[in-house]
Design a protein around this nucleic acid. Structure first.
Lengths: 257, 257
DNA sequence: ATTGCCTTCCCCAAATCTTGGTATGTTTTC
DNA sequence: GAAAACATACCAAGATTTGGGGAAGGCAAT
C-alpha cells in the first residue's frame, strides 16, 4: 500500500465525527488493508450518559448475536490479552501469551463457523476505567496481511481516539473533584488509617478529618467513604499505586501484589 | 527513511532484554529518526520489587536533575495529556487539548534552557495502575521531524512493550486474589451497602458477610476493608465501573462523573 | 483418606464511622 | 465589597465495623 493512501485512510478515520462516519471510514480502511471485518469497542465508565460505551463493527450479524447471547466476552482470550498488552497483537500470540485456557479453542472454533478467521487487535486503556479496542479480522480461509499490520496498528489507534472524541462530545467534562485536604484525608483513610491517626498525621483535629470525609461524601452524593474512595480512584484523583505502594513500604505485612 | 530500516530499528528495540540494551537500541533509533533525545518511563504499581518503575533516557543530566528536584512531574502538561490520550501526540497539541494552566509556560521555557525543544510522546496504560510513556524530543532550535512521527509512534509502542517485558521478568505473577464470595461482598460494600444489606442481597447471614470481609482483609494483610477495596481495584479484580456505574443506575443521587 | 480451602453460621466487646447540627476565619471569585 | 467555597473545630446519639474466638459441611487434590 502506498504511504499516501495509508495517510488518507487515517485522516479519514480521525476526522469522523459520528458513529456512522466512523463505521464508513473504518470499513473503507479495512478493505484497503485486505482485511474482511472490523470491530471497534469503546467503554468509559466515567461517562454519565448513554454514550459511555459503544461498539461499531461489520461482523456477520449471526456471530455478533452468538457472541453476546452466550456471554463469550468474559472468556474471550483476545479480550484477556487486551487487558495486559501495551501493543497491538495478532490473535495467534494471545494464546501463547496468556496461556490457553479451557474453552479458548471452543471460542476459536465457533468463530470460524461464523466467518471469523484470524485477527489483529489494537488495545488501548486510560487510567480509571476507560478502555477500548480496535480489531481487524480476515476470513477463516485467509491469512493475516502481514505487511499491513503496522498500518493497522496506527489506524486502530486513531480510530480509538476518534471514538473517544465522538463519545466525549456528549460527556460532561466537569468532575466534582475533591479539595486537596479532602483528598489527603481520603488517601490516608484508604490506607487504613482511622480518623484519629489521620488527625495526628495531618496535624489537625479528628473532627476536621471527619468533616473533610463528610464533605467528600456529600460531593459525590454517597453515604459511605469507601464509595468515595472507589469514585476517586475511578476518576484518577488517586492512583491505585498511592495506596498499594504505601503498604509495601510501610507495613511488615505481605500485600503480595 | 526506508521501511526496512524502520523495521530493523523496531526489532532491535523489541528484542532488548535489559535496560542497557533498551537504552542503546532506543538511542540508536532516536538518532535515525532525527530526534535528539528520548525518555522512556514505565511504572507498574502492582509489581512488588525494585523493578516496579523504571526510567531510561538520554536527556541532559542537568535537566533530569532540575525536573526531579523541583517535582515538575506533578505539573507537567505532557504528563497530564498522557493521562487522557489514547494516541501519541506532539507536545504542541497538549497545550490546546488540556488547556494551558498557569505554570505550563514556565516548564516549557525552563526546559528549553536545558536543551529540550519540542517533543513527541507515546502514552500507554493498562487497567490497574500500569502506565508508561515513550518520548522523543528535538533541540530547541529544531522542528519535529513530521515524516517520522508514525515511525516514532510504532517504535514507542514496542519500546514500552519491551520495557514491560524487562520489568516483568522479575515480577511475581502470583496475586493472592479473593474468592468469588469475598469479591461479591466487597463489591456491594464498596457501593456503600452495610453488611446487613449485603446479607439480604446475597441471601446469607450478616455474620457470613462479615466473615467474608474479614477473610479478605486477612488475605491482604490489612485491617481496613477500604484498603482491600483499593487493592482489588488496583489488581483489576474489580473494575472502577462496577461501582461507578452502579450508582448511576441505582441511586437518585448525582455522582456526576 | 486426610489435608486444605471455601462457604456458611454464631457470639461479644471495643473501636470506629456516620449523621445531624453549629461556628469562625481565610481565600477565591464575581 | 459581597458571596461562595474552603479549612478548621466542636458535640452527641446511633449505626457499623473490627478483632477475637469457635464450628460444621462440601469439595478438590494429594
Amino acid at each position: 500500500m502506498p504511504l499516501v493512501l495509508a495517510k488518507k485512510l487515517m485522516s479519514e478515520v480521525s476526522s469522523a465525527t459520528s458513529r456512522s462516519a466512523l463505521f464508513t471510514a473504518l470499513g473503507n480502511a479495512t478493505r484497503h488493508m485486505s482485511f474482511d471485518h472490523f470491530a471497534l469497542d469503546y467503554d468509559d465508565c466515567r461517562a454519565s450518559n448513554e454514550n459511555d460505551a459503544f461498539l461499531v463493527h461489520d461482523y456477520p450479524p449471526e456471530w455478533a448475536r452468538v457472541y453476546q447471547s452466550l456471554g463469550l466476552a468474559t472468556q474471550d482470550p483476545v479480550r484477556r490479552t487486551c487487558e495486559s498488552s501495551f501493543t497491538s497483537f495478532p490473535w495467534g500470540v494471545s494464546y501463547q501469551a496468556t496461556g490457553a485456557v479451557r474453552g479458548d479453542h471452543k471460542i476459536l472454533g465457533l468463530s470460524r463457523e461464523y466467518g471469523i478467521g484470524d485477527g489483529f487487535t489494537v488495545p488501548r486503556h486510560l487510567p480509571g476505567g476507560v478502555s477500548g479496542s480496535c480489531t481487524f479480522v480476515v476470513r477463516p480461509d485467509a491469512a493475516l496481511p502481514v505487511e499491513m499490520l503496522q498500518v493497522a496498528d496506527l489506524l486502530g489507534g486513531v480510530a480509538l481516539a476518534s471514538a473517544r472524541k465522538i463519545a466525549g462530545l456528549h460527556v460532561s467534562a466537569s468532575s466534582p473533584g475533591l479539595t486537596d485536604r479532602q483528598l489527603e484525608c481520603l488517601l490516608w483513610w484508604g490506607r487504613g488509617k482511622p480518623a484519629a491517626a489521620i488527625a495526628i498525621i495531618m496535624g489537625i483535629s479528628v473532627e476536621t478529618v471527619n468533616q473533610h470525609l463528610k464533605m467528600a461524601r456529600e460531593r459525590y452524593g454517597v453515604d459511605a467513604s469507601q464509595s468515595v474512595l472507589a469514585c476517586a480512584i475511578a476518576e484518577g484523583l488517586l492512583g491505585p499505586g498511592d495506596i498499594l505502594r504505601w503498604f509495601r513500604t510501610h507495613s511488615g505485612h505481605a500485600v503480595t501484589g
